[in-house]
């Protein structure tokens, strides 16, 4: 395991270059180019604001901010998982012809989604300032901690599924449905307090629960979060990383033959 980590580390340049290719290549042909990274979430936010302030009026104050600070980390997680599950399949040319630690591919994908999310946070910060909603600097210091845990969780789940999809392509479609259901089981569009008390225990088993809640604590409620709430998510993330890597190592032996 340690040797594997060391080997992946020695391929960090490949990860960096592929992430760069992904981020820069995505909007290369477009006139507005890299600006799209910011325009996209901004427009999304505008639509939500319009919809929820004109048609679907909510009791929650500043609902669009309530929603958006939860949606951005969720989109990172779900797109990592659904998109990342096909990453080895779609790069089969590389996998069949060149040796490199195969983990590089899911790592690259999740990292690229992660950086995209961080860039979207710039939009969030901008909106918080411009709208006069404001923020608590002290609370925001905890944000990187939440990000790291979420990154580990997303990576831990993407790595094994990217390997499983090589053998069973249905996995990616199943994951799409799972993620949709998962989104409604996570307090993204509604506050967690809506869930009946007797279900709260089960409800909080969801590793994304605390991540989303803490994002909201920090940015929406401007409170310093209870860091200990992150521990279960962290443990789940680390568990998936180790367990997922073990699955990955076992499955990758036949990648070149399956693809």
């Amino acid at each position: 395991m340690l040797r594997k980590i060391f080997e992946i580390y020695s391929y960090r340049e490949m990860i960096i270059e592929l992430v760069r290719r992904d981020l820069r290549g995505r909007y290369k042909g477009a006139v507005l180019g890299f600006l799209w990274t910011f325009i996209n979430p901004l427009m999304q936010l505008l639509v939500y604001t319009a919809v929820f302030s004109l048609f679907l009026r909510s009791d929650i104050q500043q609902y669009y901010i309530f929603l958006f600070v939860a949606l951005v980390p969720w989109i990172f997680f779900s797109s990592s998982l659904t998109g990342g599950s096909t990453v080895i399949l779609s790069q089969s040319n590389l996998v069949k012809k060149i040796y490199f630690p195969r983990e590089v591919l899911p790592i690259t994908f999740v990292t690229s989604c992660f950086i995209n999310m961080l860039l979207t946070y710039i939009v969030i910060f901008g909106v918080l300032i411009v709208s006069g909603y404001g923020f608590s600097l002290k609370a925001m210091l905890f944000l990187p901690l939440v990000w790291i845990v979420e990154y580990l969780l997303a990576l831990g789940m993407t790595i094994p599924f990217s390997a499983v999809t090589v053998y069973f392509q249905d996995t990616s479609h199943i994951l799409g449905i799972v993620c949709m259901a998962w989104q409604f089981l996570t307090p993204i569009m509604y506050p967690a307090s809506l869930v009946p008390d007797r279900l709260q225990f089960l409800y909080r088993m969801n590793p994304m629960y605390s991540i989303i809640e803490m994002n909201r604590d920090i940015l929406y409620y401007k409170q310093i979060p209870t860091v200990s709430h992150l521990v279960p998510s962290l443990l789940v993330g680390v568990f998936f990383l180790i367990f997922g890597e073990l699955i990955f190592v076992k499955l990758q032996k036949n990648f070149a033959m399956e693809l």
Partner: peptide, 30 residues
Amino acid sequence: SLLELGAGFHPDMSGRENIYINASIFGLKR
């Protein structure tokens, strides 16, 4: 290994940028 030439090339990126991508796949450091 020279089994696959031009691995990872991105058509919209310059030759120079693609050298970095391609060489990094071969395991080279920056």
